[in-house]
Amino acid sequence: MDLMGPSLESLFEMCDKSFSLRTVSILGLQLLRRLKFIHSKGILHRDIKPDNIVMGVDGDENKVYLIDFGLSKRFMVGGKHGKSSCSNDFLLLFVIYFVSTTDNLTCVDIEQSVRSDLEALGYVLLYLMTGMLPWYGLSVEKLMKNKEQLGDDVDTMCKGAPAALAEYFAYLFELDFGPKPVYRKLSQYVAQMASKDEKNEQQHEFEWLVCFNSSFSLILFLCSTFGAERLRNNPLINILMKC
């Protein structure tokens, strides 16, 4: 596997958990394209979270990638939507903060669909916009109950985020198990999360690229090797960020 840049979680921490809406929108649009491609191959990722989303290097610093397909499963069988159920490895390893409300952690026979990945992506976007999720700190049982209750009230769940994110979730929650989502419609919601007068995807510079300037490549390597949290208060990093 080629060396990749740091994860979104690392960069989010390095930027004091503050991304612009344009940054989150552009990341979301790229991730929707990645998921559309993965799903077109009949695969569910099943572990969408900021730690599994990384940036490119060597000229691809503006490209986002999905990694860690250890929990992925095939859901297309003979061109039809087959059964992809949760298993013990899923229950033990999945980060529950970003798990879909349809993926009941107490049931191993729950069927999953592409909605699970897309819903998890929505939680990632909510986290990157607000710096937290409404159910942080709750036990597993209370967390899932809280998410199910908030799922009926997307406006409350998305408090502090653009209205377009609530529309994104509302569309997903109306989907049945089988129907294929309209990715174009989801992309429209994600695009609407940023102001129209902001720079487009080709012109936009991510916060960490602007902040780190010419020292970015070195910081990428250090973050990937040692982790952003360990380096956050490191004097060397502070010096590089001022270069």
Results as ranks from 00 to 15, higher is better:
43 I>M: 15
127 Y>N: 07
43 I>L: 15
106 T>P: 01
109 D>Y: 11
123 Y>M: 08
56 G>K: 03
56 G>D: 10
112 Q>S: 10
135 W>H: 09
71 L>Q: 11
71 L>I: 03
76 M>Q: 14
83 K>G: 03
85 S>Y: 11
46 R>M: 11
67 I>F: 00
73 K>D: 12
108 V>E: 14
94 F>D: 09
138 L>C: 07
44 L>K: 08
113 S>K: 10
129 M>V: 01
100 S>I: 08
56 G>F: 01
125 L>M: 15
111 E>H: 15
120 A>N: 07
120 A>K: 04
76 M>K: 15
98 F>C: 07
86 C>F: 01
49 K>F: 00
114 V>M: 11
128 L>E: 04
87 S>D: 15
95 V>M: 09
104 N>F: 13
99 V>M: 15
69 F>M: 06
67 I>N: 02
133 L>R: 07
87 S>L: 02
89 D>E: 11
113 S>E: 10
129 M>T: 07
97 Y>S: 05
104 N>T: 11
102 T>Q: 14
111 E>M: 12
98 F>Q: 07
114 V>Y: 04
124 V>A: 05
131 G>R: 05
83 K>T: 10
102 T>N: 15
43 I>T: 11
91 L>G: 01
122 G>A: 09
60 D>I: 00
109 D>K: 10
133 L>F: 03
112 Q>E: 11
116 S>T: 12
113 S>D: 10
89 D>M: 05
72 S>G: 09
127 Y>D: 03
53 I>Q: 05
46 R>F: 13
46 R>V: 03
55 M>F: 07
108 V>Q: 10
138 L>T: 08
136 Y>E: 14
118 L>W: 00
124 V>W: 00
92 L>F: 03
112 Q>W: 01
57 V>M: 06
47 D>I: 04
110 I>C: 14
119 E>V: 02
64 V>M: 02
66 L>Q: 08
61 E>R: 06
70 G>D: 06
121 L>A: 05
72 S>K: 11
133 L>P: 00
107 C>P: 01
105 L>R: 09
105 L>E: 08
111 E>A: 11
96 I>Y: 12
69 F>Q: 08
127 Y>I: 01
113 S>M: 03
58 D>Q: 10
90 F>M: 13
113 S>R: 07
49 K>C: 03
119 E>Y: 06
70 G>T: 06
44 L>F: 00
91 L>S: 01
46 R>I: 06
97 Y>T: 02
68 D>N: 13
98 F>W: 04
64 V>H: 02
